[in-house]
Measured scan of single mutants.
Amino acid sequence: RKWEEIAERLREEFNINPEEAREAVEKAGGNEEEARRIVKKRL
């Protein structure tokens, strides 16, 4: 699934746990840019 690939990239890029990465992607509706913004806000 594409969402899992996005979550994996976010996890590696921001050094967050898989659960946090998945939550961000879900919140963003699968949009990678939006997920990235969500993760950055949390850091």
Rank of each mutant, 00 (worst) to 15 (best):
W3S: 15
R1C: 06
L43S: 09
R37G: 14
E4A: 06
A35Y: 00
A28W: 00
E5P: 13
A21P: 01
I38C: 08
E13D: 10
I16C: 13
K41W: 06
K27W: 03
I16V: 14
E13F: 04
E5N: 10
E20H: 09
I38Y: 04
F14A: 07
E4Q: 11
R9S: 10
E12T: 09
E13R: 06
R37N: 12
E5A: 12
E23A: 09
E33L: 05
N17C: 11
P18D: 02
E20S: 07
L10N: 00
E12G: 14
E23S: 06
I16R: 01
P18E: 14
R36C: 04
A24S: 05
K41M: 15
R36Y: 03
A24V: 13
K40E: 13
R22F: 02
P18S: 14
K27F: 04
E5D: 08
R37L: 10
R11I: 05
E33C: 09
R9G: 12
F14C: 04
E23D: 15
N17S: 12
E32L: 07
L10E: 00
P18W: 06
E20K: 05
N15A: 09
A7M: 11
R9K: 15
R22A: 13
I6N: 04
R22K: 02
G30M: 10
A35D: 00
R42E: 15
R9Q: 14
A21Y: 01
L10M: 13
E19N: 11
E20C: 08
A7D: 07
V25Q: 00
N17I: 15
R11Q: 15
E19F: 01
E13S: 13
K27R: 09
E20M: 14
G29N: 04
V25N: 01
E19C: 06
E5S: 11
E19P: 12
N15T: 13
R37M: 09
E32H: 02
K41G: 11
V39E: 05
R42M: 11
W3E: 07
G29M: 05
R42V: 10
W3C: 00
E20V: 08
K2E: 10
A24P: 01
I16D: 01
N31H: 06
F14D: 03
R11S: 08
A28E: 02
A28Q: 02
R11G: 14
K40T: 12
R22H: 15
I16A: 08
I6A: 12
E33T: 08
E5H: 13
A24M: 11
E26K: 07
W3P: 13
R22N: 08
K27Q: 14
I38S: 09
E13Q: 09
E20N: 07
R37V: 13
A24Q: 05
V25M: 11
G29F: 01
F14E: 10
A7W: 05
I6W: 03
L10T: 03
G30I: 02
E4H: 06
